[in-house]
Amino acid sequence: MSAATAAVALVSAATLAAVPDPALVVVGGAGGAVARHLLGTAVGRGEFPLGTLTVNVLGSFLLGLLVFWPVGGDALLLAGTGACGAFTTFSSFSVSTVRLWERGDRTRAALFVAGNTLLTGGAVGLAAVVVTLVGGA
């Protein structure tokens, strides 16, 4: 690690440490929710809940990077618990599945559940591979 990156890491760690834990989750949660809403509406709202699938896969990949790097403490509260936690959503996943199923869209419901499960799992696996290749902290 160069002196410059060490200094940046030290300053950012000190800055985050000065912020109380609840505020980190508040800021991360607000940012994650807004990003989910903007990306979700950009992806579109057709018959298939593609927005929810997209944020869940992307957010799981990002949380995987944070956890395997590993990032801990205040940075994990801000970016992991706050941002990635709020960016992804389980309630929209379960309610969308139930809605598709009871409307008779059973194939779409099954594809949605399988897609969320396999693609988010794959995204976390990919994050582990990326961290291994890059070297981690």
Partner: peptide
């Protein structure tokens, strides 16, 4: 719905916990 409940629940933490 979009704000509180979607952020209250989380898929990313759930998946990372499952994998680990």
């Amino acid at each position: 719905a979009t704000g509180v409940l979607s952020s209250y629940t989380t898929y990313s933490t759930f998946v990372v916990e499952t994998v680990r």
